[in-house]
Measured scan of single mutants.
Amino acid sequence: EKVLKRMREIKNELLQAQNPSELYLSSKTELQGLIGQLDEVSLEKNPCIREARRRAVIEVQTLITYIDL
């Protein structure tokens, strides 16, 4: 939940920025750090946690791809 919240904050900052190119590098670095945090999530045998992590990774990767474009 914390990762998704921060990812959404970054997305809003990028969309509202007057000059978003200044934010791209720092935002991309922070998003890659969020992916690292998601990699540390213990998936164990809980399919709900596994699915939530998968969705979060996809959302963060989508935003990274947007920045790259």
Rank of each mutant, 00 (worst) to 15 (best):
E22R: 08
V41A: 11
C48L: 13
P47R: 08
I35D: 03
V57G: 07
N19K: 08
T62Q: 15
G33Q: 14
Q32A: 09
N19D: 14
L34D: 00
L34F: 00
T65S: 14
Q16M: 14
A56Q: 03
I67L: 08
R8Y: 08
E30P: 01
E51Y: 04
L23R: 05
V41C: 10
S26G: 07
E51S: 04
V57A: 10
T29Y: 05
T29Q: 10
V57Y: 12
S21V: 13
E9A: 05
A52L: 10
L38P: 03
Q32C: 02
A52V: 08
R53S: 13
L69W: 12
E22I: 00
K28A: 03
R55A: 08
K11Y: 08
Y66V: 08
S26M: 06
T62L: 05
S42W: 10
L63A: 03
L23Q: 07
Q16I: 12
S42T: 07
P20A: 06
V3I: 15
R54K: 10
I64L: 08
V57C: 11
A56C: 08
R8D: 08
D68T: 03
I58M: 14
V60F: 09
E40I: 11
D39N: 12
G33H: 13
N19Y: 04
I35L: 15
Y24E: 03
L69S: 14
L15I: 07
G33E: 11
L31E: 03
S42M: 10
R55F: 08
T62R: 14
P47I: 09
E44K: 05
R55S: 10
Q32F: 07
E44W: 02
Y24I: 05
K28C: 02
S26K: 11
Q18H: 14
P47S: 13
I10P: 00
T65D: 07
L38V: 06
K28V: 03
L14M: 01
R50F: 04
G36D: 09
L25T: 14
Q37A: 07
K28T: 01
R55G: 06
V3E: 00
L15D: 15
A52I: 05
S27R: 13
T29E: 12
E51W: 03
I49L: 13
T62Y: 04
T29D: 14
S26W: 03
Q61W: 02
P47V: 07
I58N: 14
V57N: 03
L38D: 03
I49W: 05
L69H: 05
G33W: 07
Q37Y: 09
E44H: 04
C48W: 08
I67M: 07
A52T: 08
L69V: 11
L38R: 00
V57H: 12
I64S: 04
E59L: 01
E59S: 06
S21D: 11
L31F: 01
E40N: 09
I67P: 01
C48T: 15
E59F: 02
G36V: 11
E40S: 13
T65K: 13
P47T: 07
V41E: 11
I64H: 07
I67A: 01
L43Y: 13
N46C: 08
R55Y: 04
L63S: 00
Y66C: 05
Q32I: 07
E13Y: 15
R53H: 15
L43N: 12
K45Q: 11
E13R: 09
I10A: 00
V3T: 03
T62A: 15
K45G: 13
K11F: 00
Q61M: 08
V57S: 13
L69R: 15
R50P: 12
R54L: 09
I10N: 01
N46S: 12
Y24M: 05
Q61C: 05
I35C: 14
L23P: 00
I64G: 04
S42A: 11
L43V: 13
R50M: 12
Y66W: 15
V60N: 08
T29H: 10
E30L: 03
T62S: 14
L43H: 15
P20T: 07
I58E: 15
E44T: 07
E59W: 01
S21I: 00
S26Y: 07
P47W: 06
N46H: 05
R55K: 12
V60W: 04
A52Y: 05
P20I: 05
L43K: 14
I64Y: 01
Q32H: 06
L34P: 02
N12R: 12
I64M: 09
L15G: 05
L25K: 13
P20K: 05
L25Q: 12
G36A: 13
E30K: 08
Y24A: 08
I10H: 00
V41F: 08
I49V: 13
T65G: 09
L63Q: 01
D39W: 03
K28R: 09
L63R: 00
L69N: 15
K11W: 06
E30N: 05
L43F: 13
Q32T: 05
Q16T: 14
T65I: 00
L63C: 06
R8S: 14
E59A: 04
D68L: 01
Q37E: 14
N12M: 11
R53W: 12
L31C: 05
E22C: 13
N12H: 14
Q16A: 13
R50Q: 14
S26R: 11
R55W: 01
L23K: 06
A56H: 00
S21E: 14
L69P: 01
L69I: 09
L38H: 00
K28M: 07
R8C: 13
R54Q: 10
G33Y: 05
T29F: 12
R55N: 11
E51F: 05
E44V: 07
L23T: 04
L34K: 00
L15Q: 04
N12C: 12
C48N: 10
L69M: 06
R55M: 08
A52M: 09
N19M: 06
G33P: 01
L31H: 04
A56G: 02
E44R: 04
I10R: 00
V41W: 07
L43S: 12
N12W: 04
D39C: 06
Q32S: 07
S21K: 06
V41H: 11
E9D: 03
N46V: 05
S27E: 00
L25G: 04
M7V: 03
D39K: 11
A52P: 06
S21Q: 10
D39R: 10
G36P: 11
T65P: 02
L34T: 08
A52Q: 11
G36S: 11
R53K: 11
G36I: 09
S21L: 06
I49Y: 06
D39E: 13
L25N: 06
L23N: 02
R53A: 15
Q32R: 05
Q61G: 04
E9L: 02
L15C: 05
L43Q: 13
A56M: 05
I35S: 02
I67T: 01
R50V: 09
Q16P: 03
L63N: 02
Q37F: 02
E51Q: 09
Y66G: 12
R50Y: 08
V3C: 05
R50G: 11
Q37N: 02
L34E: 04
R55H: 06
L69T: 13
T29W: 08
V60E: 01
I58S: 15
I58A: 14
R54G: 06
D39Y: 08
S42L: 09
Q16H: 15
L38A: 05
T65H: 03
T62H: 13
C48G: 13
S42R: 12
I67E: 03
E9W: 01
E40K: 11
L25W: 10
T65C: 03
Q37T: 10
A56T: 02
Q37S: 10
I58Q: 15
N19G: 07
S42F: 05
S27C: 10
N19V: 10
T29A: 12
A52D: 13
P20E: 07
E9G: 00
T65L: 04
I49G: 10
Y24H: 08
L25E: 15
K28D: 00
R50C: 09
S27Q: 09
E9Q: 07
D39H: 06
E13G: 06
S42V: 09
R53E: 14
E59V: 00
S42H: 02
A56P: 01
E22P: 05
I35A: 06
I58V: 13
R53I: 10
E59N: 02
L34S: 02
I49A: 11
I67G: 00
P20N: 13
G36F: 01
T62P: 03
L69F: 15
V3W: 01
G33K: 10
L38I: 07
P47C: 06
G36E: 15
N12K: 12
Q61I: 05
A56N: 02
P20H: 04
R54S: 12
I67D: 05
